[in-house]
Amino acid sequence: MAEKLLEIRNVTKRFGGFHALTDVSLHVEKNERFGLIGPNGSGKTTLINCISGALRNEGGSILFAGTEIGAMPAYRRTRLGIARSFQIPKPFTSMTLLENLCIPLEYTAHAKSHGADVASEAMEILDQIGLADRADKLPADLTQIDMRKLELARAMAAKPQLLISDEAMAGLSANEVDGILEILFKLNEGGITIIMIEHIMRAVMSFSERIVVLDAGEKIAEGTPDEVVNNKEVERAYLGE
């Protein structure tokens, strides 16, 4: 059996009286391509916020590479190897693309030795993702697809073991979706475990080796893409009664 990189046990999160997550358990194996799906408001984003540290889970535990991270501030989780992209891109608006990438490089990959030459490394990553010619541009000058690429590139610059891609393809054309998929496949081949949250079924189904479905804050199904598609509960959650 493969090694578990991320393990979530009975995680619960409430906002006031609203139960955003109830007793959710799942795990992600090392170097796995993992899909997380569910209707709007099912708790996907809450769950990854709990993993990345933007929110604190109330019950249960979150283990990353065997370490309990539930109480850690977000930046330390990033330094342990968890990086994420945001559903609505959140670039550093006053910085060029190159400088955007220098932040995670300086603060995560080279956190011990501030001052390493991170610019050339940032350039390499921009090159990989196809933004090298826009290195000196500001995020405001980017198109929608380039903004998504920047979001991924910045997460890559944190040199993560686990990359959480939060709806990186929403609103993109079919061609552009393929472009992002290609990047994610390549990252996975390079040894990065990936959690994909996505509404575009074609993308999640072709990308994921295993999928977990959330509905109303609870896990309702888990399995290979085929198993999930044929699951009655999933059908009901998506289509209603």
Binding site: T78, P91, F92, T93, A158
Partner: peptide
């Protein structure tokens, strides 16, 4: 520029 993104970048 963005506090949340900054923290997630380490």
């Amino acid at each position: 520029d963005n506090e949340e993104a900054a923290e997630c970048m380490g």
